[in-house]
Amino acid sequence: MNLPIDSVMLVLVVTNLLLLGLSQLRSCVHAVAVQGFALGLLPLLVRQSGGPTVWTLLVVLVTIGLKGVVFPKLLQEALRDADVRREKRPHVGYTMSMVMGFVALAGAAWLSSRLPAFSGSPSTLAAPVSFFMIFVGLFIILSRNHAVNQIVGYLVLENGIYVFGVVLLHELPLLVEMGVLLDAFAAVFVMGVAVYHINSEFDHVDVDQLDKLKG
């Protein structure tokens, strides 16, 4: 077991469970921020041989800056504009969501045990955790109505793919990582703007009620 990496993995899992169990949207955004911070540290922990290079540091800084600071700030802005504090009625209740999260974790562990072993992977937890995060992200997008929560789900999904890339394929070119981060930034930015416009147009951000035309 690699203790620092496993601790980060643990933070990721616990923040995911929190996301499934918390009803306050503001706390959800905080949890995603913590997740972004923990995630950003991963490249530093993975590449220990020969010390971190300048590029690694750059990736770490940009990741933490975007996922730990900028995205949560954007989401908080959107929340403040929308003036909604909690999810009104999620499709799946919070306790049930947490139980589903546990099932997803077990499923992810099973799935990753079926995959051929990634040679040189520094942590045995990385594969199950990244699958788990992808499942949880999808689950949040499917089960929550509030638009901000859907962005949160998207971010979790993206974080899961990031974990997979950083820990398991630890030779991802810098250009690709930067491209992915830029894509995520553009997506969150566009969604934030969309939430703002939906809110000012419809007086709510409940995606289930967005099936009526408004002239």
């Binding site: 643990l10 899992v13 616990v14 469970l17 169990g21 919070y94 306790t95 947490m98 139980v99 999260g101 546990f102 974790l105 077990a106 562990a109 045995t124 937890l125 199950p128």
Partner: peptide
């Protein structure tokens, strides 16, 4: 919800150890 969270934390620890 808090108590189910506690069950999940314990279960998570158990899953971590079993791996």
């Amino acid at each position: 919800r808090l108590l189910v969270g506690a069950v999940l934390l314990s279960g998570l620890a158990f899953v971590l150890l079993l791996r």
